[in-house]
Nucleic acid binder design. Structure first.
Length: 97
DNA sequence: AATCGGGCGTACA
DNA sequence: CTGTACGCCCGAT
């Protein structure tokens, strides 16, 4: 949280992105945990939407956000889910399925 | 294992 | 401004 710049967007998105950036490398966070983190444990869908609207994949490691089941879920970035899995494995995270 | 509905917010008409 | 449709989902049946 020193020089990371978050692009403009809705309050929700900024809040979600802010939390995603806080995720340490080599670790993953579930959408539910993220939703609860921002104060809306039941708004997990809205959160997922905000993550999907992430314009900066290099600044915001949205690939570190996975489902509660351990699955990767989806990925709107370049390469799709395949890239997401690759990035996670690259950080040393064993991906289920 | 597969299917359905639910909760929240954004985008579009 | 009001209504409808959709999403990188979740939980229950």
């Amino acid at each position: 949280m020193k020089g990371i710049k978050i692009p403009e967007g809705t309050f929700f998105q900024q809040r979600v992105w802010r939390e995603i950036v806080k995720i340490p490398r080599g670790s993953v966070m579930t959408y539910k945990a993220l939703a609860t983190r921002i104060g809306s444990p039941n708004a997990v869908r809205a959160v997922a939407n905000a993550v999907g609207a992430n314009p900066l994949v290099i600044t915001i490691p949205c690939h570190r956000v996975i489902r509660s089941d351990g699955t990767l879920g989806g990925y709107s970035g370049r390469g799709g889910v395949s890239m997401k899995r690759k990035l996670l494995r690259d950080e040393g995270v064993e991906v289920a399925k």
